[in-house]
């Protein structure tokens, strides 16, 4: 029976097999790669299907999967760093992102890690931040970030 995927009205991925609909999630096996195989998982986080990159899904299914993957790959984009303030075993960050200013804290042992051209950083709550490549950062951001890039 044909399998297809749709992005439903309440913003969730649905797997359609005949008349049956099931809310699922798509999880990239290799999140860093655009062409990664996808594990389709149910609400108990068990795999229902492994969709390979070469899969012959209809365009609407591909678009629905891509939409769900956007959530899986969602991270907070940082445009510039306004302030990094070390205080009592914490580092308090003030950043400006695409969605406006944001403040977060990291442990002192939490360092920005190289990711693609830029860097990624995880805060105390587990949110992932993407910092642009070094040459795309303004001078102040570079100055603030430099001590943390050893």
């Amino acid at each position: 029976m044909d399998v297809s995927y749709r992005w439903n009205a309440i913003g969730y991925l649905e797997r359609l097999v005949g008349d049956e609909r099931q809310t699922v999630r798509a999880k990239a096996c290799l999140p860093g790669r655009e062409d990664s195989p996808l594990s389709i998982r149910d609400s108990k986080d068990e795999e229902i299907e492994l969709v390979s990159a070469e899969s012959t899904l209809d365009p609407e299914s591909r678009s629905a999967l891509a939409r769900d993957l956007r959530e899986q790959r969602f991270s907070i984009r940082v445009e510039r760093i306004v302030e990094i303030h070390p205080e009592n075993d914490l580092r308090i960050w003030h950043v400006m992102g695409l969605e406006g200013p944001r403040r977060f804290v990291t442990a002192l042992e939490e360092w920005p890690l190289p990711r693609g051209d830029g860097y990624s950083l995880r805060d105390a709550w587990g949110d992932l931040y993407e910092i642009p490549a070094w040459d795309r950062l303004d001078e102040r951001s570079q100055k603030l970030l430099w001590p943390l890039l050893g």
């Binding site: 969730y12 999140p31 609400s43 959530e71 969602f74 991270s75 907070i76």
Partner: peptide, 16 residues
């Protein structure tokens, strides 16, 4: 997901 959390509520007919 790596940077978000989703809460899905379902009724008798499915996700709502």
């Amino acid at each position: 997901a790596p940077s978000l959390v989703r809460l899905l509520l379902s009724d008798a007919e499915g996700p709502r």
